[in-house]
Design a protein around this nucleic acid. Structure first.
Lengths: 164, 164
DNA sequence: TCATACTTTCAGAATATTATGAAAGATAAC
DNA sequence: GTTATCTTTCATAATATTCTGAAAGTATGA
């Protein structure tokens, strides 16, 4: 019997990919690496996920870029291996940080420009409210991203209490 | 001079679409309706965004489905008009609620199944941590989605204080 | 009932995204 | 240097997503 639970996990993570803002194969590689006990090589990933070398390379690079996995050397081998960030909360922080940087910050800049250029007071009010909303999200993500590993959970729990 | 600020806003919102989990045209229609003072008809949107009737219809339906806009009648006219939710924070809550329902909840279910089926203790620990993370996000979104309009901001601000 | 005014559908077209794999580029050991 | 091993690139292919527009559907009222 193959390890169905891990396979199902890889599939699930792949389907949830769009939610994290990454593509499906990238998420499947990530999942495979999270589930693995040891670091895996490109060839191992190519085989287990049935993807081409180019595809594997591209997505591994993107994952490294996001800070979700890292390259590791194994012994004296020439080959590169990859390992997922093992601390799940740190992973969450990474995702928060990247999405803030890639998606939220540019929008704030653009909305600020709109606000500067618009002369219509009604529209300005709407823009200002939108900006407030987006800035708040930005702020929350920014603070999350800066947290130390163990500090996150208690704070989030405290927050939840205040929200009945 | 055309209203450049509004046009820029429509473009910006369209580009940020993937971040909200909706498609570009859907976001542009949404932006147009946010920026508009009055409700707009399908034909007005088709013209100003240069899109086909089918496309407009499809995306308007999706926006209604998300609860981001609603159909309104204007006077005794036969034609339907559309209007964006005017309260920006309510809009944010809607988005939170829909994404929770569409994306987070199914993942929680799937991860729970993985956990049930897996016999590997190491993997189980990782799954449990992931579940905790995803459930926390779910929890936060759920509470946000249930808030009354004016109640959201103070609470979020209070939260931010606790996070230094 | 028919004509009118509008909405919805959906097969096919257009576009955008992702994947392939062979070739070129590295790097290390000899 | 040369060979062997591994990585990266990129033109092309495959796939997935989104859009179009004409035809079919629906409601209204004369």
């Amino acid at each position: 019997m193959k390890d169905n639970a891990k396979d199902k996990f890889v599939r699930t993570w792949g389907e949830m990919a769009s939610c994290w803002g990454i593509n499906k194969t990238m998420a499947r590689i990530h999942a495979q690496l999270i589930a693995a006990d040891a670091a895996l090589s490109t060839d191992e990933l190519m085989e287990s996920l049935a993807i081409s070398r180019g595809n594997a390379n591209m997505n591994l690079r993107a994952l490294v870029d996001w800070g979700l996995i890292r390259r590791v050397s194994v012994g004296s081998e020439r080959r590169e291996y990859f390992q997922a960030e093992q601390d799940i909360w740190a992973m969450g922080c990474r995702i928060a940080r990247e999405r803030k940087k890639r998606e939220i910050e540019p929008v704030i800049g653009a909305l600020e420009e709109c606000l500067k250029e618009s002369g219509d007071p009604k529209f300005n009010r709407k823009l200002a409210e939108l900006l407030e909303l987006v800035r708040t999200v930005d702020n929350v993500l920014g603070r999350l991203a800066r947290q130390e590993r163990s500090a996150v959970m208690p704070k989030v729990l405290a927050v939840l209490k205040t929200m009945a």
